[in-house]
Simulated scan of single mutants.
Amino acid sequence: MDLYFCCACSYVFKAEIMPESCPACRQANVFASTDFGKKVELPAVRPASEAEMQAYSDAEKAAYEEKAFLEWIDSLPSYDLSDDEYHMALMLLHHFKTTPGLYTKHFIGDLLPAQKGSIEERAAQAIARILHIDVKEAFTSRINRERQDAGTNDIAEVAAQTPPDSAANVLRKFRRDEL
Rank of each mutant, 00 (worst) to 15 (best):
I108A: 09
F13K: 01
A128F: 14
F174Q: 08
T152H: 01
D177P: 00
D80S: 11
E121F: 12
S78F: 08
R46N: 06
Y11V: 07
F96D: 05
I133V: 15
E178K: 05
T104V: 13
I17D: 12
S141H: 15
Q161I: 03
F139L: 05
M53P: 00
Y4I: 09
D35P: 06
S10L: 14
K105P: 00
G117T: 08
C25H: 02
I143A: 02
D177A: 09
A124P: 05
S141F: 13
T99W: 02
L112F: 10
D74V: 06
E120C: 00
D58Q: 09
E66F: 01
V45M: 03
L42I: 10
S21M: 09
P100M: 09
G109C: 00
T98S: 06
A28S: 15
A59I: 07
I143N: 04
K61M: 13
R122W: 04
E120K: 10
E41V: 09
D84F: 10
E178I: 03
D58W: 02
K39N: 11
S49G: 02
Y64N: 10
H106S: 09
A62V: 08
P23G: 05
V170S: 03
F139C: 07
L102H: 12
L93A: 07
D74G: 09
S78E: 07
A114N: 10
A114S: 12
A138N: 14
E146Q: 14
M1K: 08
R147L: 00
Q125V: 09
H87S: 08
P164D: 12
I119C: 05
R129D: 15
P43V: 00
C9G: 07
P19Y: 13
K173C: 02
L111Y: 04
A8I: 02
M18W: 04
V170M: 02
Q115D: 11
T140K: 11
A8V: 01
D84K: 13
E85N: 01
F13H: 06
E20F: 04
Q161V: 04
F13T: 07
Q125F: 03
S166Q: 13
A159H: 07
E178H: 03
S82W: 01
I119L: 12
F107L: 08
A8S: 14
C7S: 11
I73V: 15
E41L: 10
D154R: 08
I143Q: 00
E41K: 13
K97H: 14
R122I: 02
K116Y: 10
A156K: 11
D110M: 14
H132F: 06
A28R: 14
D58S: 02
R142F: 03
E120I: 01
L76F: 09
A150N: 05
E178Y: 01
A32S: 08
L111I: 02
E65S: 07
K105R: 13
D154M: 03
E121V: 03
S166D: 06
A28G: 15
D80T: 08
K38A: 04
L3F: 10
K61I: 11
